[in-house]
Design a protein around this nucleic acid. Structure first.
Lengths: 368, 368
DNA sequence: TTGTATGCGTTATCAT
DNA sequence: ATGATAACGCATACAA
């Protein structure tokens, strides 16, 4: 029983106490909050007044136990600090709030194991789950989906409702844009191997490059991070490519820094295109990028989940979400001087930049 | 009653069913999960086997109702997409998971009203709340704190436990650093008026500037965003300052872009220092910045809350969290040519950059 | 329009 | 070491 926990003076006030004070039954108090239309206005007023005065707040657990509805959803993403996921979460959470749901947050740190743990723990107290860019293997996702209503964002599994941010046409357009500018050899700097988005983007780039007779080099950034983007720069430069499409803005931003450190300027020496649009507007020069409307996508994901919840067992939906290529200031005709040549020259000229970089790291190390 | 909801085929399996199949009482099943030490190993094994086979998962609502503990905490922040809060959330959520708690996410979109709504709705189903950088007025915070255990991050209210990321010494050091470089007039580009951090930083800057005989101009960025940072640039340049301390990295990043658009280079023409450290390492040149160790701060905040939860009514704690000034590559001796002069010259030279910017906005508008 | 009675699934007390 | 049973606070079918 719970009574023994009530040692503290400020025990939460319950429906029973409100009923006693207001001189009505517990059912009436309950109805005053959940079905006001069944009650006389004056009764409602009296009950609400007492509730206000006593500081009554419905016990969520009791309500959930009684109704079977928790009024909660869970949102599981690989990395909150990635601006794409952050914006998506923001949209999803805002919409959920507007529709009366509270949102659990799960950050899986890009690891399938943690995803699995989060999924299991959160499933117990939510009505449904939004699983974003999951790196979990299909069978495992299906098992979880069998237990709780679950929708996917950016992952394709036939019998599960899903929202797919369709970047393929935009990546194709991006390749065409680069070709039109005169680029003959381009690179795709990819993201996580298990990522549906990465496969989609890679295929769109490869297909279009083939059609247009462009040479394509593929470079892998395992985790979609600034660091891995920057780490790709050397490989990018030696590859012979004069332009690159990155898996996302964060990777592109890393590449921009890598190029700048080598004395190369974008887009004069190298052209670059990212994806998502959150970081892109904040770089200098502003990054040309495939905009995915992350915030709206999050809101739509919540809508889709709530649809699924209220439509007991209708066939799964497959919602496509459009993206657009937004040209800003990081693409231009290929440089006449090979970037790799400029870079090696830049290494000499830019000695103090490099040195400043090294000194800085030392300081950073000391500071942390 | 709940039975009528069970029309679907896959009703969740309960403790009662597991008990029946395993040939034990419900109490035993419960104990197998919560107090295994009270049971014979073979009994535990049998129960767990049945649970596994039937796919039993404890009903969180029932458990919460019975124990009075939800096993949840809530985290309320002004803006998830701000890298400081994103990193903090990540740390807080990770620690909470490790300590057996699930985390609700609330994004208040920088508005006190929404904060209030979130606080009220989430309070019902959590054991405690972490309220980050709240813009709510003190009395309101105290009311909420009276209902549920609640801790503050970066807000000072005497009787409530709080974690304060102490950036004052680092801002003071930053001012000293600029003075040592030879700057005589500096600017502080502030953040939200209701922000405790903003006040703290502003005072540290003002105090140190006074001590050192520096002229200080204060410029206000209402919301700590890239856009408002960029919007401050003109005012910054006309102010006569040769260096600026920003409220955070995001604002500093906006200023960097604003300067770049005017043909000014950092740090040659203008020195800049930000705060937080997440964005700072990703700009070019890398931004000198006060590192707040956001991730660890989040983890500590969770620890503090759980402390408060388990220490029924001990006196409130006040935890200070240190920060450090990390010098990267955005500060230097003041330019001999006034920045404002370079900027106006840059406006002519950089006409195509400006034009590109304008064209870009048009495209962006069309795309959205 | 309101009251009465019952059950939601779990945990904890008291037996055995 | 295990079983029987009474709460936990609320929502609803049913009665009035």
């Amino acid at each position: 029983m719970a009574a023994r926990r009530r040692d503290a003076g400020n025990a939460p006030v319950t429906i029973t106490q409100v009923a006693a004070v207001a001189g009505v039954s517990r059912a009436t108090v309950s109805r005053a909050f959940t079905h006001p239309n069944l009650l006389r206005p004056e009764t409602i007023a009296r009950v609400k007044a007492v509730a206000e005065r006593t500081g009554f707040a419905p016990n969520a657990a009791a309500r959930a136990l009684s109704t079977g509805r928790a009024g909660n959803i869970a949102l599981i993403v690989p990395d909150i600090t990635n601006p794409f996921f952050a914006a998506l979460m923001r949209g999803a959470q805002a919409r959920a709030r507007d529709r009366g749901y509270a949102t659990f947050l799960g950050d899986s740190d890009e690891t399938p194991q943690l995803e699995d743990v989060l999924l299991s723990k959160l499933a117990a107290q939510v009505d449904g789950i939004i699983l974003v860019s999951t790196r979990l293997k299909r069978a495992r996702v299906e098992e979880h989906a069998a237990r709780r209503p679950l929708i996917l964002v950016n992952r394709e599994i036939p019998l599960i409702s899903r929202l797919l941010v369709d970047t393929a046409p935009s990546y194709a357009a991006a390749v065409e844009h680069l070709a039109a500018l005169g680029h003959r050899c381009i690179a795709y700097v990819g993201g996580p191997a298990m990522s549906w988005s990465n496969r989609q983007r890679g295929e769109a780039v490869a297909g279009t490059a083939r059609q247009l007779g462009l040479r394509l080099v593929r470079i892998g950034a395992t985790r979609p991070s600034y660091e891995s983007g920057e780490a790709c720069t050397s490989e990018l430069l030696t590859s012979g490519a004069t332009a690159a499409l990155a898996f996302d803005d964060v990777v592109a931003q890393g590449i921009m820094a890598g190029l700048a450190r080598r004395g190369l300027s974008v887009p004069a020496d190298f052209s670059l295109i990212g994806c998502d649009g959150e970081v892109a507007v904040k770089t200098y020069p502003p990054l040309s990028s495939v905009t995915t409307h992350c915030f709206e996508a999050g809101a739509r994901a919540t809508d889709l989940l709530i649809d699924v919840l209220s439509s007991g067992g209708r066939p799964p939906q497959r919602v496509r979400f459009a993206s657009e290529l937004v040209l800003r200031a990081t693409t231009a005709a290929p440089s006449l001087r090979p970037a790799i040549w400029v870079a090696s020259r830049g290494a000499e000229v830019g000695v103090d930049v490099q040195a400043a970089g090294a000194a800085m790291s030392a300081k950073e190390r000391a500071a942390s």
